[in-house]
């Protein structure tokens, strides 16, 4: 278990999201300390992705607030702290993998990123494709590209939505290892997943059902599997 800092890195107060009369996320108040590894679990339509997009700033909350290290989600400061890897890679059709990496590093002011890029590309077996267009990659390779882009830039909070979609077993293994490295480096991890075996390796589990928080505690408890399965 990684050491968990006292400072709240991610905090939501009464955070909610609804679409007309449909509540996607009921008011949610949680606090995640620095360095904590959190698994967000729940069935399809439980509100995991909505929560994640609200934290990242891709959705506007209907009510409540999200703060990243005390800064409002979506603000300039929060954006420099949060890295987001989605289950659907969004990439430029007309930039090569190398150009994507350079762009992301420049956008986020990363320093001395070249060695780190080589390391990540090597681990995810993308080195030979560095000058190719990711738009022509397979689903799994596009997901690996998104992982490289999510991990190459500096961050304090890493948010991952369904991390293993499209990955082969070796890719999963490498990604889990890379997530461990990020956590050991002091980053806060929030990972939305269906897979309880992965959730067992984190510090804390949050379970959502129909947009409401129904479990908040350490993994491995019986009621958690009731919620997900």
């Amino acid at each position: 278990m990684s050491s968990v800092g006292e400072q709240s890195m991610l905090e939501t107060v009464g955070l909610e999201k609804s679409y007309d009369d449909l509540a996607a996320l009921e008011p949610l108040t949680i606090s995640i300390p620095q360095g904590q590894r959190v698994a967000l679990v729940g069935r399809n339509g439980s509100g995991k992705t909505t929560f994640i997009k609200l934290v990242v700033g891709l959705l506007d909350p209907t009510g409540g607030s999200v703060r990243i290290a005390g800064e409002a989600a979506g603000s300039l400061a929060a954006r420099s702290l949060v890295s987001y890897i989605s289950d659907e890679p969004v990439l430029y059709d007309d930039l090569s993998l190398a150009e994507h990496i350079e762009l992301i590093c420049r956008l986020h002011g990363a320093q001395d990123w070249e060695d780190r890029a080589i390391y990540l590309l090597d681990r995810l077996e993308l080195s030979s494709r560095i000058d190719r267009l990711p738009s022509r990659f397979s689903r799994g390779l596009r997901q690996k590209t998104a992982i490289v882009l999510g991990l190459i830039r500096p961050f304090s909070v890493l948010i991952v939505d369904e991390p293993f979609v499209g990955l082969d077993p070796l890719g999963r293994e490498v990604f889990v290892d890379l997530l461990g490295q990020a956590a050991n480096g002091g980053s806060t991890l929030v990972i939305a997943t269906h897979q309880l075996e992965f959730a067992a390796s984190v510090d804390r589990c949050l379970a959502l059902r129909d947009g409401a928080l129904v479990f908040d505690g350490p993994p491995g408890q019986a009621e958690l599997s009731d919620v997900v399965q």
């Binding site: 990242v56 300039l76 954006r79 987001y84 969004v90 059709d93 762009l103 956008l107």
Partner: peptide
């Protein structure tokens, strides 16, 4: 991709 990468960057 602009929304995901550029607008989510600290710029």
């Amino acid at each position: 991709a602009d929304v995901r990468h550029v607008l989510l960057a600290p710029i």
